[in-house]
Write a protein that binds this DNA or RNA. Structure first.
Length: 895
RNA sequence: GGACAGUUGGCGCAGUUGGUAGCGCACCACUUUGACAUAGUGGGGGUCACUGGUUCGAAUCCAGUACUGUCCACCA
């Protein structure tokens, strides 16, 4: 914002823009311009309203996908809009270290170099990850540039920045000292490939075709047996009981007896527990506390042991519970072998096909193994309470509102959060244990135990769940716990825009952490945008190869066209949107249209000095387009207030193409030819175009900056170096003029009528015709006479006759309300064709008449409908009758 | 199993308080007129998923059904 504005743009030759818009060139030029001038860097302007938001930090392993591009565009539209509206804006960008993902990517890379993480050791490995991050970690930020997003680029944050890490450890220690964080030994979700635990939300349940195995457990005494049902027969080695429902008459007598565990010699008891569903399977449930979360609960209730038979890598353990032949074998291999053995032994009663949900690791898609281990947990119930309240009381609003329910459902049934991960890449849990077994949390590496003299302390091996750090994103990026200026000015942030799939994973956690640590909400509104699916309604995924790369689309259609489409998708419509490339083509053509409109307007401004419009001296068309323009501005402003991007986009698109280009520019050509109207027309043409560029800039920053820079501007804009800092246009009530809309509407209808007749009767486009207009209404007649030039030019009429009371024979005509528009065709008329056309019209009119007659014929309608509605129908009938008679008359004339 | 969405011309979608269905693409015809053929002009095409109900009147309100999609959920 430092260089003076270039008023010389006024004199820019219109020839320098060619016919076709070239997005690539313009985007490259302005990207460079913007970054060279550092226009995006944070600039806190005192005494201004504030608008701020934090970009959901993409993973450093990520590439820009459709979701990023959509969300980025929506936020950028708001940021650019607010900036132009005079707000002090902050859009905090940054990236997430993404524990599991990044570790996976780097491990895979090392594997290609034949290096194993373990051989390397923790420290060396982390060094490798940092190297990787240096090289590739900013890829996605570079990709965002192509979209034209106006982040506060000088403030890119990373969840492993020094100040960010401080925030994490501060947060952890507060929770720890207040007793929210605790160590628990229980069943957790375990990924045998990543070798780490996962939170419930990181497990994807997929319906999988499997089997339900019915296995016989013989009683130790007597002949009988109990048959249990399981989907995972290999886990029976860890069984410690068979449970039945206490009220199940079939099995009551067996409770307390012992059964023999197949494949082993162990004997286990039959117990009774309410958890068992009598209707499911056989009503007998095998209890494997170490390998099933529910069984663990049952085991706890009955004081049962929990033998571990599957290890962290998903292999059978080499211990006394597992027969030697299975030692070290993979769980799925053992499943097959166990099934075979059971069949052999005659203990397999039945194998049923069975479809059920199986948990998979979100990152590597390995089947999750419920695993008994020590993990760090965050106690959630109490922390959730205020977070529920702020949403219930609408201090934080979801847009669309329905997503508040998603959030509240989750929060009200919250379970404790497993925050530890057995990874190397991440924030190491800041808990140290001294040689005297004193455990405590420290914000920085301790020199000495907090509880004794010991100076020998060891830190916990685990790292924090990535989401623990992202939960602090909105305030940690602003410097919390330091009271930085940015923090004071911009926090709480105004909005958060994100995808619905992370409402619980991320949004919920930001809310409760902010309430806990900052004592305030993190943002006022949460915008949830739709998910972009493939054209056939499937989820886009890189691994399935059906994902569309937004960078390819930007390359092909231009960033502005893509942004226009994203904005048109908005957040208020469907919760899923199918990707369609032809939509991008539509907006690409729109950009081209705009470009050419700009070329035309700029070419018409010779000798023109920018000046405001005088509402007093305008023509009908001028008044009309100004009315339309200001109506559009009003609607757009309203739409943005409601976050209705779709509506705003449509308003701009329709105004630009239909009203401004298709009608006003054509009319302007007529007016420009008249010396007395030239300057005024230039003024209207220019003022609207210039304002339109500003109105459109938040959605299409590149093309508008380019065109605006070439557009002459009044001194009012001298201080604005770029359109992005110019004020956003507001509607001016002086230009609202409903009458012009009605009047212009009539003229347009007459023009359309003439065009219609011409084409229906094959009048060559090159020939000028004589048009007869018979207007019964004096005002309408006067209006049409006054604006006859528009009709002449736009309908290609050589002469327009308003006085002829009877039509010459062989005239073709149409009606506009009570006005008859006719073209005498004389010898050129095709009688048969005309007759056929008239008969078609007659049939249509009669059909319509019958429909209306039916409505009016309904006695209840006359009685109960509001009088004005009844009158409307009556008027319509009268008009249709009139039309019908005219057609009949016309047909007679042909004979 | 629960919840939330969607179902309107070939395709993608608009339709704010119920009052004769609109847009873009595609399609047909005409037009290279000095902003734009990535264009202009005109035109054809829909009983608004289905079934009931409320109402003088329903794409619009209510109930149910079907299909599609998403999220949540510890039934082996």
């Amino acid at each position: 914002m430092s260089t003076p504005s270039t008023k010389t743009a006024t004199s820019m030759s219109p020839d320098s823009t060619s016919g076709a818009y070239n997005p690539k060139e313009v985007e490259a030029k302005w990207t460079k311009e913007w970054f060279d001038k550092e226009v995006f860097d944070l600039d806190i302007i005192p005494d201004r309203p504030v608008f701020s938001c934090a970009l959901p930090p993409p993973n450093i392993t990520g590439n820009l996908h459709m979701g990023h591009a959509l969300n980025g565009t929506l936020q950028d539209v708001l940021i650019r809009l607010k900036r132009m509206q005079g707000y002090s804006v902050l859009w905090q960008p940054g990236t997430d270290h993404a524990g599991i993902s990044t570790q996976m990517v780097v491990e895979r890379k090392l594997k290609q170099e034949k290096i194993n993480r373990r051989d390397l050791g923790r420290e060396k490995f982390i060094e490798k990850v940092w190297e990787w991050r240096k090289q590739y970690g900013d890829t996605i930020m570079q990709q965002y540039r192509r979209l034209g997003v106006s982040f506060s680029w000088d403030r890119i944050a990373f969840t492993m920045d020094e100040s960010y890490v401080k925030a994490i450890y501060r947060a952890f220690c507060i929770l720890y000292k207040e007793g929210y964080i605790y160590r628990g030994n229980r069943i957790c979700n375990w990924c045998p490939r990543c070798l780490t635990s996962l939170s419930d939300l990181e497990v994807e349940h997929e319906d999988t075709k499997g089997h339900l195995y019915l296995i016989k457990y013989p009683l130790t005494e007597g002949e009988g047996s109990l048959t249990v049902a399981t989907t995972r027969p290999e886990t029976l080695l860890g069984d410690v009981a068979v449970a039945v429902h206490p009220a199940d008459d079939r099995y009551k007598q067996y409770v307390g007896k012992m059964v023999k565990l197949p494949l082993t010699n162990r004997e286990i008891p039959v117990i009774a527990d309410n958890y068992v569903e009598r209707e499911f399977g056989t009503g007998c449930l095998k209890i494997t506390p170490a390998h099933d979360a529910n069984d663990w609960e049952v085991g706890q209730r009955h004081n049962l042991s929990a033998p571990i038979v599957i290890d962290s890598e998903g292999k059978l353990c080499a211990n006394e519970f597992v027969p030697e032949r299975f030692h070290g074998k993979d769980r799925f291999v053992v499943r097959k072998e166990a099934v075979a053995e059971l069949e052999e032994a005659g203990l397999m009663v039945e194998i049923k096909d069975y479809e059920h949900g199986v948990g998979h690791c979100e990152r590597c898609h390995t089947v999750i193994e419920p695993y008994l281990s020590d993990q760090w947990y965050c106690s959630m119930k109490e922390l959730a309470e205020p977070a529920i309240k702020v949403v219930e009381e609408e201090r934080i609003k979801f847009v669309p509102e329905r997503y508040a329910a998603t959030y509240l459902d989750w929060m009200k049934n919250i379970r404790d959060w497993n925050i530890s991960r057995q990874l190397w890449w991440g924030h190491r849990i800041p808990v140290w244990t001294c040689e005297n077994e004193h455990v405590d949390a420290y914000e920085t590496a301790p020199e000495q135990c907090s509880k004794c003299d010991s100076k020998t302390l060891t830190q916990d091996e685990d790292v924090l769940d990535t989401w623990f750090s992202s939960a602090l994103w909105p305030f940690a990026t602003l410097g919390w716990p330091e009271e930085t200026r940015e923090f004071k000015v911009f926090y709480p942030t105004t909005i958060l825009s994100t995808a619905r799939e992370i409402i619980n994973l991320w949004v919920a956690r930001m809310i409760f952490t902010s309430l806990k640590f900052v004592k305030t909400i993190p943002f006022k509104e949460v915008l949830i945008h739709p998910v972009i699916q493939t054209p056939d309604g499937k989820r886009m995924s890189k691994s399935k190869g059906n994902a569309v790369d937004p960078l390819d689309m930007i390359e092909k259609y231009g960033a502005d066209a893509n942004r226009f489409w994203f904005a048109s998708v908005g957040i208020k419509g469907d919760q899923d949107v199918r990707f369609r490339e032809d939509r991008l083509d539509e907006y690409k053509r729109f950009a081209n249209k705009l470009w050419n409109a700009g070329r035309f307007v700029l070419s018409q401004l010779e000798g023109y000095t920018p000046a405001p419009i005088d509402p007093q001296t305008l023509t009908l068309a001028d008044r009309w387009i100004l009315h339309r323009f200001n109506t559009m501005l009003k609607n757009v402003g309203h739409a943005y207030n409601e976050y209705d991007f779709h509506d705003a986009t449509r308003e701009i698109y329709d105004f630009t193409w239909d009203h401004y280009c298709d009608w006003y520019i054509e009319i302007a050509k007529i007016q420009m030819a008249k010396p007395e109207l030239k300057e005024q027309t230039q003024r209207v043409l220019h003022n609207i175009f210039e304002g339109l560029m500003r109105a459109m800039h938040p959605t299409a920053p590149f093309i508008t900056d380019e065109l605006w820079s070439r557009t002459p501007k009044s001194e009012l804009f001298d201080n604005y170096d770029s359109i992005m800092f110019a004020p956003y246009p507001r509607d001016d009530e002086r230009f609202f003029n409903e009458q012009s809309d009605a009047e212009m509407g009539l003229i347009m209808k007459v023009i359309r009528s003439v065009r219609n007749i011409r084409q229906t009767f094959n009048v060559p486009a090159s020939s000028e015709v004589e048009v007869i207009v018979q207007a019964e209404n004096a005002d309408e007649k006067k209006l049409l006479e006054a604006n006859v030039d528009y009709v002449k030019r736009l309908a290609k009429a050589g002469k327009v006759d308003f006085e002829l009371s009877t039509l010459p024979p062989r005239s073709a005509w149409d009606k506009v309300g009570s006005i008859r528009v006719a073209i005498p065709l004389g010898s050129t008329i095709d009688i048969e064709k005309t007759r056929e056309k008239l008969k078609q019209q007659l049939a249509a009119t009669e059909k319509e008449l019958a429909k209306q007659a039916q409505i009016i014929g309904n006695l209840d309608f006359a009685k109960k409908a509001p009088p004005e509605k009844v009158q409307i129908i009556k008027d319509q009938i009268a008009e249709l009758e009139h039309k019908k008679n005219s057609i009949i008359e016309q047909l007679k004339m042909l004979d």
